[in-house]
Simulated assay, not measured.
Amino acid sequence: MKILKQALLILTLTATVLTSCNKADYLDIDAGDRIPLSAKVKFINARQSTVAVNFWDFTRKVTGTVLQRNTASPYLETQYGKVQFNLTEGTDPSYKASYIFGGSANFVQETNSASFAGPNGPIADFAHSLFTVKKKLTSTVNPNNIDSLILVYDDLSLPASGKAKIRFANFSPDAPKVDLSYASGSVLFSAVGYGTFGGQTVIPYTAGKAPAVIEGLSWKTLGPFKEVDAGSGINLLIKDNTNQTTIPLSNTALTGAVFENGKIYTIYLNGTLAGTPALTATIISHN
């Protein structure tokens, strides 16, 4: 399952952006008075390498400073629509990852008779997260690209009172399918494989094409959030989904975790079980 094919949303410039005027009205407004159109993207460095990175849309560097491993930028204004996002290391200009996202003006998916340039496209005035992660398999076509990029939409609607929202992703290339569970036993997300998010709608592919209709597919189902009780001192475990043994982490992010009332978080697993860097969990806040 190709990591980029997991995120199959391709939305761009539509009437959802121009809520108070149509296209002709918008073009008739003086350029200085137009509502600025841009996508909001949080860039997250979840790769294996400890070398800090920059993100680019086309040839414009978006991140003001380099992002260290397992850190995230604030939401930044970026190009929307059909966009090429690129990744570089430090001051090195060569791309370590480069992918085109988008290519449609509507919420559509690839079918057996039609395809598009790439997976989800950033939408003007929407919130997104773009993760850079270690490729599971190296590329023979472009061996310089050592990482992949995954773009998902962020549902930033607030949870109910007394609740927080979390989602969970597995970016460890040698980890099995895993569960994220409370130490007390109840499971939050089950059987999350490499390059996927817990509870997401998975896009099946046959001979490189997806079916015309995928039940449950929406912009909220690629990296879905789940409401949990807010609180402090929360202990979570990573378990092998097959044998339910606890997988040890090399850090303590899931021990005594704090999920604040009304806050939204992504938890992800990266690193390796049998290599360097070791397996870790990271919690990123969205609001």
Score class of each variant (00 low, 15 high):
Lys239Pro: 08
Ile3Ser: 04
Ser157Thr: 15
Thr206Asp: 10
Leu149Phe: 07
Pro224Tyr: 08
Phe107Val: 07
Gln244Thr: 13
Ile150Arg: 05
Val228Ile: 07
Val141Lys: 15
Leu27Arg: 13
Thr111Arg: 11
Pro248Met: 01
Ile247Gln: 02
Ser139Asn: 15
Thr50Gly: 04
Ala281Val: 03
Gly223Met: 04
Gln244Leu: 14
Ile35Tyr: 13
Arg60Pro: 03
Ala46Ile: 06
Ser73Asn: 02
Ser232Met: 03
Lys40Val: 07
Ser49Met: 00
Asp28Thr: 00
Pro248Val: 01
Met1Thr: 06
Asn70Asp: 08
Glu110Pro: 04
Ala160Cys: 14
Gly199Ile: 05
Thr276Leu: 03
Thr14His: 13
Ser184Gln: 15
Asn70Glu: 02
Gln109His: 15
Ser115Glu: 14
Cys21Val: 07
Ala274Thr: 06
Pro204His: 07
Asn120Val: 07
Pro204Tyr: 14
Ala15His: 11
Gly64Gln: 14
Leu149Val: 05
Gly198Pro: 11
Gly275Met: 03
Ser113Ile: 10
Phe116Ile: 10
Pro122Ile: 04
Asn70Val: 04
Ser181Tyr: 11
Val213His: 11
Gln109Asn: 15
Ile264Thr: 05
Leu18Cys: 09
Thr111Val: 05
Gly233Asp: 09
Gly162Ile: 13
Ser73Cys: 09
Thr221Phe: 06
Ser98Leu: 13
Asn287Ile: 11
Ala7Lys: 08
Thr111Leu: 10
Asp92Trp: 12
Thr272Asn: 00
Arg47Ala: 05
Thr221His: 06
Thr245Val: 06
Val141Phe: 15
Thr282Tyr: 00
Leu4Arg: 08
Ile146Pro: 02
Val213Trp: 07
Leu18Pro: 03
Val17Lys: 04
Gly233Ser: 03
